[in-house]
């Protein structure tokens, strides 16, 4: 491959017949197998390498408590509750959930007009010390949804947020919107801020 013999055998008998010429040995080494081996190893190392070291995201959970004085209080006006449902669907309401669920709205993870816009919008309207975002994944939300929402808190520089169990009423509304049956097992809600 590397060197194709173009000399075409013996280059004539210049010294006449009978004169024996010492054969000159080429000092060139065929590099082909070495290159082959080299690239084989490169390929091997490329495939086994973990190039990007994974990053970590800190998560602080609060201690579970039932004592009233240990619970963090949130102003109704500054609260935004975001619920995660099936197939990356998001639902949210501001303040307190209305009896007729009129402020229960749905949104998505869309970077332009999804939840981010709603958070930014809410942040503009609320004094910074009052803003609290409550995250409530239901039983069909994935781990990715949860991490994405926590990430959204970092992205929008939200200082106070909480990861909380969903309440039955909220979960019922989600299932009603999605048209899926409510699961038998229910979880107990316990408000507790995460940071």
């Amino acid at each position: 491959m590397a060197s194709i013999d173009t000399a075409g055998g013996d280059s004539g008998h210049k010294k006449g017949p009978g004169v024996k010429k010492a054969k000159k040995l080429s000092t060139r080494v065929d590099m082909t197998p070495m290159v082959d081996l080299g690239f084989l190893l490169i390929t091997f190392f490329i495939f086994t390498t973990t190039m990007s070291t994974p990053s970590t995201m800190d998560l602080f959970m609060p201690k579970d408590t039932n004592k009233d004085e240990e619970l963090n209080k949130a102003k109704q006006s500054g609260a935004l509750t975001v619920m995660m449902g099936k197939d990356n669907h998001l639902y949210y309401y501001e303040g307190k959930l209305a009896e007729d669920a009129s402020n229960f709205l749905s949104t998505s993870f869309d970077p332009d007009k999804g939840i981010r816009k709603i958070i930014i919008d809410k942040k503009k309207r609320t004094p910074p010390e009052d803003l609290v975002i409550v995250l409530k994944p239901n039983e069909e939300a994935t781990y990715k949804n949860t991490v994405d929402m926590l990430d959204e808190m970092t992205i929008n520089n939200v200082k106070r947020f909480a990861l909380v169990d969903i309440s039955e009423v909220e979960n019922m509304l989600i299932h009603k919107t999605e048209g899926t049956p409510m699961p038998a097992a229910t979880t107990t809600a316990q408000p507790a801020p995460a940071q």
Binding site: S52, P54, T56, D58, L59, I120, V147, T154, I155
Partner: peptide, 22 residues
């Protein structure tokens, strides 16, 4: 076990352009 601090292992990504973090 009274452990409340976690690190979630994730793959890195850049902050979306135009956001506060960005």
């Amino acid at each position: 076990n009274d452990i409340y601090k976690f690190q979630l292992v994730t793959a890195p990504e850049n902050a979306p352009v135009g956001t506060e973090l960005y």
